[in-house]
Design a protein around this nucleic acid. Sequence first.
DNA 1: TACAATAAATGCACTAACGCATAGGAATTT
DNA 2: AAATTCCTATGCGTTAGTGCATTTATTGTA
Lengths: 165, 165
Amino acid sequence: MNEGVAAMEQGAIWTNALTTESTLTASRALLGIVARSISNALNDVTMPQFRVLVVLSGSGPLRMGALAEKMGAVQSTFSRTIDRMVKGGWVERASSPDSRREVLIFATSQGRALVDEVTERRRAELSRILSALSPEEQAQLASAFDVLARVAGETPAEELLILGL
Amino acid sequence: MNEGVAAMEQGAIWTNALTTESTLTASRALLGIVARSISNALNDVTMPQFRVLVVLSGSGPLRMGALAEKMGAVQSTFSRTIDRMVKGGWVERASSPDSRREVLIFATSQGRALVDEVTERRRAELSRILSALSPEEQAQLASAFDVLARVAGETPAEELLILGL
DNA sequence: TACAATAAATGCACTAACGCATAGGAATTT
DNA sequence: AAATTCCTATGCGTTAGTGCATTTATTGTA
């Protein structure tokens, strides 16, 4: 193999390793922000329950079965979870206009507010942190993240659910 | 207020908002990586149990009480969690050399291996993703992330524990 | 109309985690 | 030596979540 090429490849490997470490460090910082944004909500609902609200916020009302499947839970298990959430005022059951044997789950305004608060808290803290940077630095950061998001690809919702997001 | 200054501040606000959105998007991608790295481990241990192993990996053996406090759990609750983890072969109890009333918790090699696998999986996937970028892009990414990590500050371990990390 | 298929809820059994109160052994103080 | 403090473990009760099997209501089909 050509020595010059080998040296270049070696350089690329180092760069990758360094970038990986920087990214891991940054991801810890971002995870901290995410965690803090959620922690308050966890006084009111459990993580699985919060997931339900996030899913409903994203998709609108869903049938019991469809929702259970999205949550990766057996339908019977899920029925009970919904019982608890109804009791807490986070969601409501309503019979479907399509079929009387179907039950649609709606997030209540209280439920939507909970998710909105978390989202807003996250956005606010991020904005606060970024404001410590110059506009130039921010622009650099934005383009770096855009690049990352592009190569990282879409994150299927199911995967975020592993962490309860 | 001077119009030129006002225009500049407006520009800064836009930049911040755009950067915030880019960061939020990227953080979802990073969360996906983190979630995938953990999902396998969750077949073996629960999230709280995984936390214990992460903490022990970071700090070495700890007393029951200290560990319980780090986990934000009541000590009695925690004693039972350790019972289960001992049963599963993830940790071991050992009497402290300092005092016979103290009990130290060690991660077993099996326990350390579990954490290592997760860490390695995360690093590998990140590295794989980054390798799609040119060294120049990677270098840009690294410096942008270093900047972010600097302004975001340290993330206390307790906060990551909210998400089970 | 009788029968099969679908959707949700219930009965039952289980595990993990949580907290409070308390017991037991070990170390420290008086 | 006795009393107190410290550290862990246990008894007891509770909640959330999980899964399997079954029931009930509704819809679709033979």
